[in-house]
Each structure stands twice: as C-alpha cells, then as structure tokens.
Design a protein around this nucleic acid. Structure first.
Lengths: 206, 206
DNA sequence: ATTAACTCGAACATCTATGTTCGAGTTAAC
DNA sequence: GTTAACTCGAACATAGATGTTCGAGTTAAT
C-alpha cells in the first residue's frame, strides 16, 4: 500500500506513530506552495500545486485526502501567520493612528495574501466555516478602529464594520497593483498607508 | 440543419438577411441573463446561462459560437451601458466634487456590475483585449479626478491613477456588501459616496 | 399556406480536474 | 541491515464543462 494506507488527514493526527522527516518536509513544502499559488490564483489545480511543491501528485493526495482538506489546512496556517504578524505590530499600544500606520506598514502584504486565500476558501469550503475563520484577523483590525473612534481620532460617522471592509478592499487593490507589476511593494505600501490614514482621520467627516 | 448553419457570430452580421423577431428576443434574453450571472459569478456555466435566459443550450450555441464570443458580446454591451450612464451624469459640468458625487450616486451599481464582468472577461479573453475595453470607463473617471486635482479640490499628493483604482475597489466592496445582504443598495450607496468624497478631498492630504 | 428561420432535447466527442489504485523503487529510523 | 514509511509514475474511474450533430417540432414572415 501507499504511504500508510490513507493517513489521518495530514495535520490532525492524534497520538499515534511519529511521522518521518521527509514526509514532514514535503507537507511543509506543499502548504507553502499551495499558499503561494492559491493566493495568486484561487483556481490553481492540485497538479499545479504538487509541481510547485516539487512533489508527485500522488504524494500530495497521500497527505491531503482532498482539495478541500488542503485548503482547510492552508487557510488555518495563513490565519495563524496573519494573527502572529498582527500581534507583533502591537495594535493596542500607542495612539490609534500610530498603531494603525504600524500595522499597515508591517502587515499589509501578509494580510493581503490572506485575502487572496480567502477567495480560494470561499469556493472550496462551506460558507459558514470560512466566515468563522475570516472573523479572526478581521476582528483584530476592527478592534483597533473602534479604539480610534472612541478616542476621537478616527471618524465615527461611518460604522467601524464598513471601515474594516474598506481597509481590506484597499489592501487588496494595492496587492493587485504589485502583482500586475504596476508598482513596487514599497510604492504600494506607501500609497496604502497614506490613503488609509486619510480615510480614517476624524476630520475627514462629511 | 439548425438555425441557419453556423450564423455569423451573433451581433456582428454584415448586411445579409434580417433576423427573425424571436431570435432577436432570445439573443437579448441571453445577453441579459449572462450579464447578470457572470457579474455575480464569473464561473457561471453556459448551461446555467441558457437556463437563466429561458432558452435551450443548443439555442445559445446557435447564436454565440463559443463562451468566449458570448463574453465578448456581454462585455461590449456592458461597456456601452456604463458609458451611457456615465455620460448621462455629465461629469464635465459643475464642480468636480459635485460632479463626482452625482456620478457615484447615479452610476455606482452599473459600474460595479461592470467590474464583476471584468473578472469574467479576464478569464476568457486575451489580456490585451480586456485592457483595451476596460480603459474606457476607467479613463472617464480618471479625467474627472484629474480635473478635480487641477482645480485644487481633489488631493494631488496621490496619483490620479491610484485614486481611480481605489474608487473601483470601494465600488466593488460596496457591491459585495449588498450582494451578501449585509446592507441595502441605498445604505451602501450612501456609505460609498461619503467615503469616496472624504478620500478625494484636497484637505485630506498627509 | 407555404417556406425558411428558429428552437430544443438527446446524444456524442473532447478536455480537464479530482481522486484512487497498483507496483516498484527510495529513504528514514531503529 | 532490516523494516516500515514514504515517494511517485502510469493508469484508471468519475464528473463537469464545452462544443457539435441530428432530427423533429414550432413559429415568424411573405
């Protein structure tokens, strides 16, 4: 039989026998490649992903029983990564405006990539599950915005929820600019930071 | 043989014989249904489109030799529609801020739907062709923004090009909100107008 | 009323993607 | 060095989408 006759869904594995080192390496390569490809193209095929990971298609299926399961794993990893980056930017420290600028400057490519994966997840996973996961990084940003609104430094004439939506929309727009080769990552980050801070400023109210 | 043995690509038709009234009606229904479905889901299948148009799949293929040709036609129609709506909002009259508010208020759902189709077109048509078509409504908005920048009422510290990108990104975000049922079209339009006018205002500069 | 245009279900060919099986070959672990 | 875990190409099964053909029935135009 193959690897070990239909293993228990990759990442999960209860207490059982250890996994071999090469398997561990391959799984990591697959997740990395899938994250990269799916963020750029939500339609990337399993074949593409296997090739990009430098692994046979059969090996991919040995570790992830289905595309759905792969995407589930990739999404979870990306969320972990995103949340780590957000925490590292210490969104609770300093003035809201400063914290926000810091957050965008350090995290926008990561958050944008997460947005790309979100699209892939939306197509492969049940809506409710995606929503549940999506709320985590979304909620973190929202908290910061609410803090700014309460402190009077962010505009409060628009719902925080909508401001979060606009932040993500512009994040994504900036990511597209970079991907299309129209701007460097630095230029895009700069535009993004200036655009968003103007958007959130309290004196921008109508 | 079928309709008239592989007709000349639907809309095109040189001088030849007239088209029958029912055929004309079906073509219109197909284009309408395709516009609607593809704007919501760029992956909508030909089968879905035929069903939504209340027409047999074979009839669809009798009028449009391929998915690509259908999308080409739909895109052209949507652009015509968009441009008409934009012109009707008279973007050259009045102050840039007023003209812009008027434009968004009257056109945003149309422009957003055009954005959805753009995604479908991107997958089915050669990139260069999509770019060429996309530049039309894009350019119209850009001209208005440049006019505002030159008049000193829109911020000039960000490139007009980028501002156009942000406008479309927020348009799309607002459309998603409506489609997801989180807001009514009126609410979304209102948020959009206030968000965008704040974004463009000259005194919003860093 | 006649005719040509049109519609459309059924069936087919083709392609691509997912997921599985087999079997032989590697490679990590002890 | 033995063994169990792992890899992977080839081949298969299945499913969905595109596009085509046939043939019989409908409907608009004159």
């Amino acid at each position: 039989m193959g690897p070990s006759t239909r293993r228990e869904a990759a990442e999960g594995r209860a207490g059982g026998p250890r996994r071999r080192a090469d398997a561990e390496r391959n799984i990591a390569a697959i997740v990395a490649a899938a994250t990269d490809l799916l963020a750029r193209d939500p339609d990337a095929s399993m074949t593409d992903i296997a090739r990009a990971a430098g692994v046979g298609r059969v090996t991919l299926y040995a570790h992830f029983p289905s595309r759905e399961e792969l995407i589930r794993t990739v999404l979870a990893a990306a969320i972990g990564h995103s949340m780590g980056a957000v925490e590292a930017a210490a969104p609770e420290e300093g003035s809201p405006a400063e914290a926000f600028a810091r957050l965008i400057r350090t995290c926008w490519p990561i958050l944008d990539r997460f947005g790309g994966l979100h699209e892939a997840a939306r197509r492969a996973l049940p809506a409710e599950e995606v929503r549940r996961h999506h709320d985590l990084p979304m909620g973190r940003v929202e908290r910061l915005i609410v803090r700014g609104q309460e402190a009077g430094s962010f505009r409060a004439d628009l719902p925080a929820e909508w401001l979060v939506t606009t932040v993500y929309a512009l994040l994504h727009a900036a990511g597209d600019e970079v991907q299309a080769g129209r701007r460097t990552a630095e230029e895009a980050g700069d535009l993004l930071e200036r655009t968003l801070s103007a958007l959130l400023r309290a004196d921008a109210s109508s």
